[in-house]
């Protein structure tokens, strides 16, 4: 919590730094938006985060910083028709990468639980550093967390959003969340469609993101 606060404070201090990572490590740092929809499409959980592997700082940096929330939700919901179609033709739970939204270079992966909950993950590679400013390098040193980002990024699974490695990593991520989701749903007080507010659940999702993405 503390580190979040201090980071947020830094973000305010440096108002115009959409790219705070050094250009070369930035290439594989993805931004993720994960959401769970009930079988009737009520959103019951969502979270945004960035790549943690290969030294990423785990912070999401979407391409439309001001409107990312709305854009992400819009993009995710626009892929629901495809999910619904796949729901009755593919008996697996992990449906893999199912949709791409080219204007935002956003990729959508889906996972369906047997009881009809939908896990949707939007992943967006960072903008190419064509507009990279020298200022961004300076600011990266201000953020303590990015000190280690210069490590080799070849281990990152996100380099190619549709590669088999990425699919596998997302599958692991989804499975891990599925286990937590089942635990939530098993509680006698949890009713289908209720927002998942448990901080422990959120921590679990964050941890799964760190571990696999």
């Amino acid at each position: 919590m503390l580190s979040y606060q201090s980071r947020a404070a830094l973000d305010v201090l440096i108002p115009s730094t959409p790219c705070v990572l050094s250009p070369h490590s930035q290439l594989s740092k993805m931004s993720y938006y994960f959401t769970i929809l009930s079988p009737t499409d009520t959103p019951i959980f969502n979270i945004a985060f960035g790549t943690s592997k290969g030294g990423g700082d785990g912070i999401a940096r979407f391409r439309f910083p001001d409107t990312a929330q709305y854009m992400n939700q819009f993009i995710i919901h626009s892929s629901l028709d495809i999910v619904e179609e796949a729901q009755w033709t593919n008996g697996g739970m992990y449906l893999k990468h199912i949709d791409t939204y080219p204007p935002a270079t956003a990729y959508i992966s889906a996972f369906l639980t047997p009881s009809g909950a939908r896990f949707l993950l939007l992943h967006q590679p960072p903008q190419l550093p064509s507009s990279g400013t020298s200022g961004s390098l300076g600011s990266s040193s201000l953020l303590g967390s990015s000190a280690s980002t210069t490590r080799a990024s070849s281990s990152s699974v996100a380099a190619n959003p549709t590669s088999p490695q990425t699919e596998e990593a997302i599958r692991q991520f989804m499975n891990e969340i599925y286990e937590s989701y089942v635990k939530t749903a098993m509680s006698p007080f949890y009713k289908q469609g209720m927002e998942i507010k448990s901080p422990v659940f959120r921590t679990r999702v964050t941890a799964a993101g760190k571990k696999w993405l």
């Binding site: 635990k183 939530t184 098993m186 509680s187 006698p188 007080f189 949890y190 507010k197 448990s198």
Partner: peptide, 11 residues
């Protein structure tokens, strides 16, 4: 087992 009490500030 499996139980998480309602998050209503009272339970």
């Amino acid at each position: 087992d499996f139980v998480e009490l309602p998050d209503d500030g009272r339970a």
